[in-house]
Structure formats: C-alpha cells, structure tokens
C-alpha cells in the first residue's frame, strides 16, 4: 500500500472524526473544532492531489483560498455563538429548539 493511499485513508478517517464531532457535541464552539478537524484533512487532500498530479502550485493556491474562507466562516460562527450566548446565557445547542417541525 502506497504512502498516498495511507494518507487518503487516514484523511477519510479524520473527516469521519470531524463529522462525529460536529454531530455529537452539544457545545456551539465545539462545532468549530469538529469543522476544523475535518477541514485539516480536506486541505491535506488537496495538497495530496497536487502531489500526485504534479500541480502543486495550483493546489497551494486552492489551500490558501480555502484557509481564508475557513477563517471567515469561523468568525461568523463564533459571532453567532456569542450572540446566542448573550441571549441564552449558555452555549448549549439543545436550547435551539424553538424552530422545528
């Protein structure tokens, strides 16, 4: 089994871990942690792609853009989370049940 294959499988496992974190946590900020963990694997995938097809420069350009977007997302998420904290006094996503059905 080649090294890129191992990286691929490890990345998939890490994405799985990130999704589990996203789903299982009850804390709003830990949603960011789950998302970030998964995104690490995804950026590694992009780089792995460049590594395999010889377009590393392009892959790096992608990764840079992804990172910028990721940061913006993290900012917005934490902004919403903090606003919600100011409303509810807690970061528990189980409080978010007023809209349903």
């Amino acid at each position: 089994m080649s090294m890129p294959t191992v990286v691929l499988i490890a990345g998939l496992v890490m994405i799985l871990a990130g999704c589990v974190g996203l789903i299982r946590t009850h804390h709003m900020l830990k949603i960011i942690i789950g998302l970030e963990v998964a995104m690490k694997a995804v950026t590694v995938f992009i780089i792995l792609g460049g590594f395999l097809n010889g377009r590393m420069a392009l892959a790096q350009a992608f990764v840079v853009t992804v990172i910028v977007v990721e940061v913006v997302t993290a900012v917005v998420l934490s902004g919403i989370a903090i606003s919600l904290y100011r409303k509810h006094g807690s970061m528990d996503i189980r409080n978010l049940r007023s809209l349903k059905g």
């Binding site: 994405i15 998964a38 694997a41 995804v42 992009i46 097809n53 377009r55």
Partner: peptide, 17 residues
C-alpha cells in the same frame, strides 16, 4: 463545505484542474 471540498479535492487529484 466538508462534503464539497472533499469532492473537489478528489476530483482535483484525478484531473489536475
């Protein structure tokens, strides 16, 4: 985002563009 980026990365891995 996770889904789409993973998909894009896999596509990119294959096609290089």
């Amino acid at each position: 985002t996770i889904m789409m980026l993973t998909g894009l990365a896999l596509l990119f891995m294959h096609t290089g563009s």
